[in-house]
């Protein structure tokens, strides 16, 4: 009996925190993020209504049908009711998947435009590196045998390859606002994961695979990139930032970086 109010109170508290958004997403910084938040809210409303109804109903039957000396009714079920709620849930859940399809398709099926800025991402235990092709637009040849982390060559750039002379290597990600970006992601050792909350995007980086991820960020700012796939004892320290700059600042940064 006491269980009924306990369930109701817990339900109310949980519903309150979802409604108040006390601990919540940071604001999105692109169109995908806005679409993502809409899909999240749609799902939250559907599941939230089911959650509140189901918990309240559970509390209600516990309260209403507690043993008061009256014998229980005898029935084995109701096929019509069964069919109705089965098809209703099926439609509701399927509908939710379908409404989210476009968001997934935009991230994974659409080819990035030809002028997207390519940036190579390297994950290793427990640091991030980013490489820009430089003014020639070409990435230089790399080989593991040239890798030297302490000499700022995590990619293993071959200094004999002229295409690599102007490559820019950075420990944090800098991108221009409003421009399509194409990340080409590699791992040198174990699986890592590139995650930026504000982008509403996440992607595993699997050694032995080249994994693309394309997006665009519109709001200038600095955003954190915490590794989001267990990669070993320093997993919690594997953090960098993504700085979204105005296009002019970005060009300036590239020039400064190239001079070093």
């Amino acid at each position: 009996m006491l269980l009924a109010p306990v369930i109701w109170i817990l339900t109310a508290i949980i519903a309150y925190f979802f409604a108040a958004k006390t601990w919540w997403f940071p604001p999105p910084i692109n169109a995908h993020g806005i679409a993502y938040d809409q899909q999240f809210m749609r799902t939250l409303i559907v599941t939230g209504v089911i959650f509140v109804l189901a918990q309240c109903a559970l509390g209600w039957v516990i309260f209403r049908f507690r043993d008061r000396g009256r014998p229980a009714s005898h029935n084995h079920g109701n096929d019509r009711l069964e069919t109705v709620w089965t098809s209703a849930t099926a439609l509701l859940f399927l509908g939710l998947v379908l409404t989210g399809t476009k968001i997934w398709a935009n991230v994974h099926f659409d080819q990035p435009p030809a002028d997207a800025i390519p940036i190579e991402v390297l994950g290793k235990q427990f640091a991030w590196s980013f490489r820009y092709p430089g003014p020639d637009g070409k990435f230089g040849h790399t080989d593991l045998k040239f890798v030297n982390d302490s000499a700022a060559n995590p990619f293993g750039l071959d200094d004999k390859d002229p295409a690599g002379k102007d490559d820019i290597v950075s420990a944090s990600l800098k991108i221009p606002a409003g421009k399509p970006i194409k990340l080409i992601m590699h791992s040198r050792d174990v699986i890592h994961n590139f995650f930026v909350r504000e982008l509403r995007m996440k992607q595993d980086i699997v050694p032995g695979m080249e994994i693309p991820l394309s997006f665009q960020a519109d709001t200038v700012g600095v955003y954190e990139v915490p590794c989001s796939e267990l990669c070993g004892l320093g997993h919690f320290q594997m953090r960098t930032t993504m700085q979204v700059m105005s296009p002019a600042d970005f060009e300036q940064w590239k020039i400064e970086k190239a001079q070093k």
Partner: peptide, 27 residues
């Protein structure tokens, strides 16, 4: 209690089962 927990735990699965939303929630 099982029923209550099953409802609560099951519904959060509706978020995770959508690849679009899992883009953020995974791990």
């Amino acid at each position: 209690g099982f029923v209550s927990l099953f409802v609560t735990g099951g519904l959060s699965g509706i978020f995770l089962g959508q690849p679009a939303l899992d883009l953020y929630f995974h791990d």
